[in-house]
Design a protein around this nucleic acid. Sequence first.
DNA 1: AATGAATGAGTATTCATTCAT
DNA 2: GATGAATGAATACTCATTCAT
Lengths: 215, 215, 215, 215
Amino acid sequence: MPDVEDAVRSVRRDSRRRQVLDAAVAVMQRTGYHEMSMQALAGEAGVSVGLLYKYFGGKEEILLAAVLDILDSFGDQLAPAMEEAGDDPVERLAAGFRRYVEIIDLDRDAVLLTYRESRTLSPAGRERIKQLEVATAAPLRAALADGVDRGLMRALDPDLVVYDLMLLAHGWALKDWHFAPIYTVEAFVRAQIALMLSGIVAPAHRRRYRHLLEP
Amino acid sequence: MPDVEDAVRSVRRDSRRRQVLDAAVAVMQRTGYHEMSMQALAGEAGVSVGLLYKYFGGKEEILLAAVLDILDSFGDQLAPAMEEAGDDPVERLAAGFRRYVEIIDLDRDAVLLTYRESRTLSPAGRERIKQLEVATAAPLRAALADGVDRGLMRALDPDLVVYDLMLLAHGWALKDWHFAPIYTVEAFVRAQIALMLSGIVAPAHRRRYRHLLEP
Amino acid sequence: MPDVEDAVRSVRRDSRRRQVLDAAVAVMQRTGYHEMSMQALAGEAGVSVGLLYKYFGGKEEILLAAVLDILDSFGDQLAPAMEEAGDDPVERLAAGFRRYVEIIDLDRDAVLLTYRESRTLSPAGRERIKQLEVATAAPLRAALADGVDRGLMRALDPDLVVYDLMLLAHGWALKDWHFAPIYTVEAFVRAQIALMLSGIVAPAHRRRYRHLLEP
Amino acid sequence: MPDVEDAVRSVRRDSRRRQVLDAAVAVMQRTGYHEMSMQALAGEAGVSVGLLYKYFGGKEEILLAAVLDILDSFGDQLAPAMEEAGDDPVERLAAGFRRYVEIIDLDRDAVLLTYRESRTLSPAGRERIKQLEVATAAPLRAALADGVDRGLMRALDPDLVVYDLMLLAHGWALKDWHFAPIYTVEAFVRAQIALMLSGIVAPAHRRRYRHLLEP
DNA sequence: AATGAATGAGTATTCATTCAT
DNA sequence: GATGAATGAATACTCATTCAT
């Protein structure tokens, strides 16, 4: 049954890759990409140096895979959280932002990694990251477009606002030395939502979202 | 006249340092810090390798000096621009943000450099950068505090809002691949001001700042 | 059979180290430690630069290993030669000294190396060299102590005499430009033995060792 | 009076050279020749780097001058001390050896320097050092030859014995870690004289030199 | 005579990548 | 599939020497 064997091989291959990527993220968070030697990575991952080259084309490919991995896991969790918030676009937006910050909070260093090492990648790699970022932002963007359409939000450019929200969410990691001492995640999220939604929600509907708008 | 000689020496020394730092920023924007070899830097700066070590302690010290240099030039220009905007805190805030984005626009790569390479620095170096960032933000923070005091702005935490504004301004450089194709600097600034001030200005005074609040 | 593999690895490792040390001694005798570049050493040893650092911690560690290696080989040969000379302490001493000079004669440059480069080593390395020197001298010292005990030698301090003998033996290498033109090794050894033993052997027993005392 | 000016110049030149050589010996004793940078030497000597090259041809020339300087000062003091000991060759020899060790004791590091760094010098420089060593040894050699001629000493080869004496004297510096803990200079000298003279003095005259021969 | 800024060749060490086993 | 020994190009930093002032 060669199909079964193939399947087994494929699963093992995936688990090896994961093993390496997890180790890579761990090492790079400690030391940065350039300071991570392939021998150190092999040690951390518990495999031989040679094997790294069986599963990845080289060091940069590992970086790209690690970053994509992180961004993937971000994107996967956004849509479900927004579903749970129901149909109202403002509620969905708030829920999406909240979840995004929560995800970031669980792995602040991973976010820093994407900011720090993006430039290290080849143009092709950078392109893939951008596409993934756009894809991640899609549910937020949809809620914004919906809200504007339904007159619940001011006629703002969704492409602007969605990136603002992402930047502010990233800010929780990028400027954690500033925010962490004065805010909990929960308080940070509430305050940001109150501030941003005040600019986003159409004046006529502000009362309906009082619970979100008041810090 | 040893005083004169000393002065001459000091001036020459400063000009040498500037020569090196300018070259360093140029090379690092092209290739990143780690990819910049000291020989390449020396070539770009038009000095010998050995001389780099007369003026700086080593490679990392050059990075730190370059980053501080960039941040310094940012901070220097903010306060004057806000002075010109007159006494009204909302107008001052808007003018400060506008100028900040304009400065960033002139040297987007420099901003990227500070985000990318901060982690490369020693803790002491990172600390100095943070302090400089706080100092840079001070005028914006003052305008916010003033606006809240005078009841022109909602009772928001200035420490939150000022970092939001900085993040959004940095966004012009960090996400230029997203914003630049769809916005001019001017349009970007207007849109961001319209969005953020809507959340900041107290409802009772919104009409007064209509010219800023409508995109 | 992992044991076999380990053994093979260990043997290969040892042979590699030897290969490098032999080359190091050769190069350093020609040029001195500081003038020996790691690339030159690698070339002489027929290995790559990188491999040097797999087998040794660095340049200084190679120097230490080389010097210890030389001293080791000295020490190993002294005791057997003295055994052969029988039980008489004077005969043993003479035989030991003779062999010591003969060993030195085979590798004069190695002795010079230990004198020249000892100071280059770390204090810990120097300490190990001293200990090895003391260990090397032990058989000579034992013969002296025995001779004094048995009344065959004057009541001299063995710690003084043994170091005198070693210095004079080293002299064959240190001052070879002086001695080599006027003495063969054999003649040098005979003359030194005749001179020193005259001072060492107790007057009452001098006749018995006439064959050693007359040059 | 150009002669006077020349003389002044010459004296200043000599004092500058001495200033540099003293500094060089001091630095090299601390760190060794190769570790001494010309800039460090200039600093220690209190002159500029450029000036070093006015007074010496280069780094190696400074080493040679320093070593010759040391050896000179050794040689200068030997003959007078032997004169004071009177006409007897055995007494002269003992006095010469004693003074030699005393000189060495005052500057052990200088002796080590000559052993360590001789190989660093060019063949021509090494040649000059050998000649100086022979010249230094001349008074000792004369006493030996005289003693043999007058029948006070055994018919030993003066060229052998004189180098033995020098080696043993140098041993006080070379092996100070061995001797210093167990001997004072005075005790070391007495013991060595007792040992060596026992081998040198003709049996018929041993009683006359009992005061030297018994430790 | 004296300075010290400037040079650039030289070098120990690291590390991504390969490949025989 | 898996290993890890071996490679050698790349690079930060040093320092003897020069020379304009």
